[in-house]
């Protein structure tokens, strides 16, 4: 392998590694953070009325 080919292979591997490292950093972020900021538990409580009388269909 010539010196030029070795150099270009080194650059190629360096760039790919940097890309994967960046991906790993991003994926390490709390994955649910973006989705969950939108949906928050609002605390709507649903209760049956105690004096209501149910029936058959």
């Amino acid at each position: 392998m010539s010196q030029q080919e070795v150099e270009s292979r080194k650059i190629f591997i360096t760039r790919i590694s940097k890309g994967f490292a960046g991906l790993a950093v991003l994926m390490a972020l709390p994955g649910n953070f973006i989705a969950k900021t939108k949906n928050r538990f609002s605390g709507i409580k649903v209760n049956v009325h105690p004096n209501a009388v149910k029936r058959n269909k």
Binding site: G22, L26, M27, L29, G31, N32, A35, N39
Partner: peptide, 12 residues
Amino acid sequence: AFAATACSDYAD
């Protein structure tokens, strides 16, 4: 890469 991260728990 961004999409993969953001979609990890889509529409929770």
